[in-house]
Design a protein around this nucleic acid. Structure first.
Lengths: 243, 243
DNA sequence: CGGATGCTTGAGGTCTATCAAAGCGAGTGG
DNA sequence: CCACTCGCTTTGATAGACCTCAAGCATCCG
């Protein structure tokens, strides 16, 4: 998979106001003035090589991060070493909202490919959103959207069977890629079967078997991490086959 | 179970500034001035009889609600009629955060006993939190806490087995009741086995069997909905027995 | 008191996990 | 340039956890 948005030459000072992702990210719906002020806030960038952590559970929370390019996973772990992938984040999505509650990050965020994020110092964001109603509201919407998303994952984990889970996962991925201008039918997975399994509450063997079954059923073409969706309607049917 | 906080006589105008729950709720950490202003905002009350909805999926979103007395469940449902309980809320906890993202509620909130909530008009809250930094920050913390809580539920649903789930659920309940001044060992469940099962991703029979097993193992005393925790450390061990 | 609702318990079946082995592919070094 | 290695994936056989179906019991409430 190519980078969702071509990286500008380094010397060009990119900013929210001229970012290709502003329709998917925090700036959505802001006025020109608000955008300008946001630019002054979101000045820093940070590159995260594949496999490295953007932050880890327990790290002091100072900033939110907006994915510019690349791909991340977030995961939580319990004291006894259990591990659960809680989400995958692509360009335009926010990372770090978990950290606000206790001033420390509550999960790990790991880059699944070489990535770049915009650093959004949280104190500054709160300060600025006191002056700009719309910015404040947009931020609240983003947090709320995360809560709604999490509820959807609970529904998936609590009430769906393996095939339904994987189908729902693939449809969600393709829908998000499509919103970023990519094909809705051809995708390259950035994560391993094990990471998909962790996210979906399944073992990696079950994920692999389910991919194979979808291929046998003519829903997908699967070549390792290269996936082609042959029958989107069929996938939708699988998701809804539970009840 | 008794009401967590004795209901004041109706004629007494209760407000955030003299609410017994202010250490658990939105007012936490606010100055006297901020509290006073919050009082003017949170003027309305609403009673919800047992079994009735505070709001339903699709209802227009206008206000958040703080539970004053009683007990709620929230649940989401998919198009195909699948149903998932996403949480249980008791006194001092906020309901409705899901509604911010699309100006419509994204779940159902049902009272599991006769309940009373404080109505917090959301526009007013955003307006007021533009003036009061601390209120804004406290609200952000509450939203973030909800996100962290949801991640914990994902961990539970994605990686724990039936006994671990139920033990974790009971420990969470007793801990929250304890924070409200109740016994950490004796509790009365306000929800059915089926609702517990839906929350934990299990069938009601499995919940019932697991309760029986805990009783056989000397961890609990179970009399229908009356639960006595006999061995809290043992429950903790069950939660961590997975890995 | 009697019906309704919710809870418990049993038997048998299904789905997913577990254990094991072989295959594929990308990157490395000879 | 090829052989090798390592990580990841696929596939098979088996086992175990949880679900399903069914019956009986307890509790609540009119």
């Amino acid at each position: 998979m190519q980078l969702p948005i071509p990286v500008r030459p380094a010397e060009v000072k990119a900013a929210c106001s001229n970012c290709n992702l502003r329709e998917l990210c925090l700036p959505l719906g802001l006025s020109a003035e608000e955008l300008g002020r946001l630019d002054t806030l979101v000045a820093r960038r940070r590159s995260v090589p594949r496999g490295e952590a953007l932050f880890r559970n327990g790290d002091p929370f100072e900033s939110l991060f907006a994915v510019r390019t690349g791909f991340f996973k977030t995961s939580v772990s319990s004291e006894d070493g259990r591990d659960q992938v809680t989400g995958f984040q692509m360009a335009g999505e926010l990372l770090g909202l978990d950290g606000i509650s206790h001033d420390r990050h509550a999960c790990d965020a790991i880059a699944l490919e070489d990535s770049q994020v915009c650093v959004i110092p949280f104190e500054d964001l709160e300060h600025l959103s006191q002056q700009f109603r719309e910015l404040q509201h947009q931020f609240h919407k983003i947090m709320s959207r995360e809560i709604v998303r999490d509820q959807g994952v609970m529904l998936l984990l609590g009430s769906m069977r393996a095939e339904e889970r994987l189908a729902a996962f693939l449809l969600n991925l393709t829908q998000r890629l499509h919103a970023r201008g990519f094909s809705a039918s051809a995708l390259v997975l950035r994560m391993t079967r094990e990471e998909i399994g962790s996210y979906l509450g399944l073992k990696l063997e079950t994920v692999s078997r389910t991919f194979s079954k979808f291929q046998d059923d003519g829903l997908l073409e699967v070549k390792q991490r290269q996936i082609r969706v042959l029958d989107e309607a069929g996938l939708r049917q699988v998701v809804n086959s539970g009840c």
